[in-house]
Amino acid sequence: MEVIKLNYPLNLNKIGLPPLSMALGYFDGVHRGHQKVILEAKQQADQKGLLSAVMTFDPHPSVVLGKSEKHVQYITPIADKINLIEAIGIDYLFIVHFTSEFANLLPQEFIDQYVIDLNVKHVVAGFDFSYGRMGKGTMETLPFHSREKFNFTVVEKLTCGAEKVSSTRIRQFIREGNTVELPGLLGRFYITAGEVIHGDKRGRTIGFPTANVETFDEYILPPLGVYAVRIKIGENWYEGVCNVGTKPTFNMDAFRVSVEVNVFHFDQSIYGEHVIVEWHKYLRKEQKFSGIEELVSQIERDKQNAIQYFNKIDKHLLNDCEK
Results as ranks from 00 to 15, higher is better:
residue 160 C to R: 11
residue 181 E to K: 14
residue 172 Q to N: 14
residue 185 L to W: 04
residue 196 V to L: 06
residue 172 Q to A: 08
residue 178 N to W: 01
residue 173 F to S: 10
residue 186 L to M: 09
residue 178 N to I: 01
residue 194 G to E: 07
residue 181 E to Y: 03
residue 159 T to W: 03
residue 165 V to H: 03
residue 201 K to F: 06
residue 156 E to V: 05
residue 176 E to T: 01
residue 190 Y to E: 05
residue 194 G to N: 04
residue 182 L to K: 04
residue 201 K to Q: 15
residue 170 I to F: 03
residue 195 E to K: 13
residue 201 K to V: 07
residue 192 T to H: 03
residue 152 F to Q: 03
residue 188 R to Y: 09
residue 152 F to M: 02
residue 177 G to I: 04
residue 150 F to P: 00
residue 179 T to R: 01
residue 164 K to N: 10
residue 197 I to D: 04
residue 157 K to A: 15
residue 149 K to Q: 14
residue 173 F to L: 14
residue 172 Q to V: 02
residue 176 E to P: 01
residue 194 G to P: 00
residue 170 I to P: 00
residue 202 R to V: 12
residue 190 Y to P: 00
residue 189 F to D: 15
residue 187 G to F: 07
residue 199 G to T: 02
residue 183 P to D: 11
residue 159 T to I: 12
residue 181 E to N: 11
residue 149 K to D: 00
residue 174 I to G: 04
residue 160 C to F: 10
residue 163 E to K: 15
residue 177 G to W: 02
residue 170 I to D: 09
residue 165 V to T: 09
residue 180 V to H: 05
residue 157 K to P: 15
residue 149 K to P: 00
residue 159 T to L: 15
residue 201 K to D: 14
residue 158 L to F: 04
residue 149 K to A: 09
residue 178 N to L: 03
residue 153 T to A: 04
residue 175 R to V: 02
residue 195 E to V: 12
residue 151 N to G: 13
residue 191 I to R: 13
residue 199 G to L: 03
residue 197 I to V: 15
residue 162 A to M: 11
residue 184 G to D: 05
residue 188 R to T: 05
residue 149 K to T: 00
residue 185 L to N: 09
residue 180 V to E: 14
residue 193 A to T: 10
residue 184 G to L: 15
residue 150 F to R: 11
residue 170 I to K: 03
residue 172 Q to S: 14
residue 170 I to C: 04
residue 173 F to Q: 13
residue 177 G to C: 03
residue 172 Q to E: 13
residue 157 K to Q: 13
residue 149 K to Y: 03
residue 160 C to V: 08
residue 165 V to Q: 10
residue 157 K to I: 10
residue 168 T to P: 00
residue 192 T to A: 12
residue 203 G to L: 05
residue 160 C to P: 01
residue 203 G to N: 10
residue 180 V to D: 10
residue 202 R to G: 08
residue 170 I to G: 09
residue 184 G to A: 13
residue 195 E to L: 05
residue 167 S to V: 01
residue 191 I to F: 03
residue 202 R to K: 15
residue 189 F to L: 08
residue 186 L to H: 03
residue 150 F to T: 02
residue 189 F to T: 08
residue 173 F to Y: 14
residue 161 G to W: 01
residue 180 V to K: 10
residue 191 I to P: 01
residue 202 R to Q: 15
residue 178 N to Q: 13
residue 169 R to I: 13
residue 149 K to W: 01
residue 153 T to P: 08
residue 178 N to V: 00
residue 196 V to N: 10
residue 172 Q to P: 01
residue 175 R to M: 13
residue 196 V to I: 12
